[in-house]
Structure formats: structure tokens, C-alpha cells
């Protein structure tokens, strides 16, 4: 099964860390990502730019309305996304529980919606042919 792990963290706290500490923590995360790669669990990931540069888009009375900042105004913001392959939800939990990123903030684990993914794949194939 494919899972999407959303890693949250506190940007203010993170920015307050000395650079050496930041590098060390990132190296730990990368090393564990390699562990996941070895077990063929790591399908990919994306790091997110600062939430301070986020814009949130919605439609208000038919017009585009843009607010600066992330969708939710919480201390912990989405920092990165990891795509994970695991046998089931408990397997995904045990894999992510060991990820050093969890020390920086919580992970939200969601299973992929394979029904919609199939539809997207079909559209892709149709588009490319």
C-alpha cells in the first residue's frame, strides 16, 4: 500500500537552531531515508519552502482571493511530504516512528486514494497517447 506522510514542524523553533544543529538533524533524516530506500519503502518526497512564503488561494464571490500565509495559522506547519510503501497502516506507523523527523514535529500518515489515482493514471495515459 502507498502512504503519504505529511511532516509538520515549528519553523520558529527550527530557525532558532544553530546551523550545525540543523545540518546534523537533516543528515539524520537523510540517513533514515536511505534505510527506507534499502527496504524499498521510499517512493519519493518533496521538501516544502517556508510557510512564510505560502499563499492560500480560494474563490470568493466568483473572484480569486489570495491571502498570504498558510491555510491554517498554527505553530506547526507542513514542512515536507514523503511517499511511503508499506504492507499496511501499522507497518507504515512502525517505519515512520523511527524517522528522526518525528523529533521535529508530528507526522500525519494518510493512505493514498487508489481509486482517484487510477483515474489520474488513466487521464495521463489518454493524454500522452
Amino acid at each position: 500500500m502507498k502512504f503519504i506522510c505529511l511532516g509538520y514542524f515549528d519553523e520558529v523553533k527550527w530557525n532558532a537552531l544553530p546551523e550545525s544543529e540543523q545540518t546534523k538533524l537533516m543528515e539524520e533524516c537523510f540517513a533514515y531515508d536511505d534505510e527506507l530506500r534499502r527496504g524499498k519503502h521510499f517512493l519519493g518526497g518533496e521538501a516544502l519552502g517556508s510557510a512564510a512564503n505560502a499563499v492560500t488561494l480560494r474563490i470568493k464571490s466568483g473572484d480569486v482571493d489570495v491571502l498570504d500565509g498558510p491555510f491554517t495559522e498554527t505553530k506547526e506547519v507542513l514542512g515536507g511530504i514523503l511517499f511511503l510503501e508499506a504492507k499496511d497502516l501499522n507497518h507504515a506507523i512502525s517505519l515512520m516512528a523511527k524517522h528522526p523527523g518525528v523529533k521535529m514535529g508530528p507526522f500525519e500518515i494518510r493512505c493514498a486514494d487508489e481509486t482517484i489515482n487510477q483515474q489520474i493514471l488513466a487521464r495521463n495515459n489518454k493524454f500522452n497517447n
Binding site: N90, I93, C111
Partner: peptide, 22 residues
């Protein structure tokens, strides 16, 4: 059995079942 299979047999969400197993 997988967490998801057990959850569907007991009519609860996989998250609830995963929590119990953890």
C-alpha cells in the same frame, strides 16, 4: 491479516484499529 482487513471486518476505521495494535 493487514490492519485494513481487520478494520473492515470489525467496521471501524483503519486508524482506530492501527491505534489498538500500536
Amino acid at each position: 491479516l493487514t490492519t485494513e482487513e481487520i478494520a473492515s471486518a470489525y467496521l471501524v476505521t483503519p486508524a482506530t484499529m492501527a491505534q489498538r495494535i500500536v
